[in-house]
Design a protein around this nucleic acid. Structure first.
Length: 352
DNA sequence: AACACCTCCAACCGCAGTAAT
DNA sequence: GATTACTGCGGTTGGAGGTGT
């Protein structure tokens, strides 16, 4: 009901606007103001439908529109608001002076969405991607039954998962299997069986074996998410703070030791007040925590913990994935996320 | 240089909500 | 209350320009 006829059915022009048309529209609106879009094009001498005129004005010609690249602050605000509001582009645009909903929508679809996907975050739910959780399940089971899955077994799923993550997982798995062969003494077996979820063993063991425990921590964490999702069907709507729970039980997250750094993607800035004004505190808290649920947490390092000089004994892999320098520089929250510290001796490219 | 492929963004489309009659 | 007109919104498309081969 109420749909105006399509422009071209009335012989009206479609497609890109010319400078002359723009000027006619601007002149008319400056004289008469906007509104009455149905009759405006006729009065302004434009062979366009009212809808097209309104769109051209609101998305491009309006004098208060800010053109140009989005700042990092704007980008962070968009992500924050989207985590609370979803695809309410007009509401998000209202919080970003000078930006139109169309512009924000485009920016989201062409940049931010891809960025979040690269980070292993579902851009719709702002939670870790389920496919990665499934990988964690796979890896987790393989750790305790290494005969079921060898590194070559990962190759078949390469099309599903981020290849860099797969390479790393494969390398870690190889190393894991080797370590199991070496350390399969009865004492060690007992410790492996009983100590997997005990923080002290985790951390002490990590100190002595930098390969085994990061992936255990990673897979346990992801498994915890996976288990929660499977046992709480409603959890997708009201996800718990699994990372906090994991912290409490395992005390693996320890910024002071730099082992399991919580990622700050720029969510904890002055814009937090915007979130709090739009949603209750729990919701906002959820948004923060969700973003901190990086599935790569245990494999990552902060710049402070991954100081990697050229002659370092470890190799730092940065997943540029063909992105240009500008993107990388602007990518404040990806910067830490895609940086892996891989212990010496691991061949992350060795599964080709 | 030519072609294919990719990215980005302005513009379009259709639906829904609301005001006017 | 029913119908019509208008506006706003979100999803999608198409083409220009950029990049890779």
């Amino acid at each position: 009901m109420g749909n105006p006829p399509c422009c071209d059915k009335n012989g009206l022009k479609k497609g890109p606007w010319t400078a002359e048309e723009d000027q006619k529209l601007i002149d008319y609106i400056q004289k008469h103001g906007h509104g009455r879009w149905r009759t405006l094009p006729k009065n302004a001498g434009l062979k366009r439908c009212g809808k097209s005129c309104r769109l051209r004005w609101t998305n491009y010609l309006r004098p208060d529109i800010k053109r140009g690249k989005f700042s990092i602050e704007e980008e962070e605000t968009i992500i924050q608001l989207h985590s609370v509001l979803g695809n309410k582009w007009s509401v998000i645009a209202a919080r970003l002076p000078g930006r139109t909903d169309n512009e924000i929508k485009n920016y989201w679809n062409t940049r931010i969405k891809k960025k979040l996907l690269r980070m292993g975050i579902d851009p719709v739910t702002h939670s870790p991607r389920l496919d990665l959780l499934e990988l964690s399940s796979l890896l987790s089971s393989s750790l305790y039954n290494s005969s079921q899955l060898n590194p070559s077994g990962l190759h078949g799923i390469g099309s599903i998962f981020n290849p860099n993550f797969l390479n790393l997982a494969t390398a870690l798995l190889s190393s894991q299997n080797k370590n199991l062969e070496i350390s399969n003494t009865p004492e060690n077996v007992q410790q492996n069986q009983t100590g997997n979820f005990q923080c002290q063993n985790q951390y002490e063991s990590y100190q002595g074996n930098q390969v085994q425990n990061p992936i255990q921590a990673c897979t346990q964490l992801l498994q915890a998410n996976l288990n929660h999702v499977s046992t709480n069907p409603t959890s997708l709507n009201t996800p718990p703070n699994l990372w906090q729970e994991y912290d409490r039980e395992n005390i693996i997250v320890s910024n002071s030791k730099g082992f399991f750094p919580m990622q700050n993607y720029g969510y904890h800035d002055s814009n937090q007040s915007i979130i709090n004004s739009l949603a209750d505190q729990n919701q906002a808290c959820f948004s923060e925590n969700i973003i901190n649920m990086s599935p790569f947490g245990s494999l990552l390092s902060t710049p402070s913990s991954s100081s990697t000089p050229l002659n370092s004994s470890s190799t730092t892999y940065v997943n540029n994935n063909g992105r240009n320098t500008e993107d990388i520089e602007r990518d404040s929250y990806c910067r830490n996320t895609l940086m892996f510290d891989v212990p010496n001796g691991l061949n992350v490219n060795g599964c080709a």
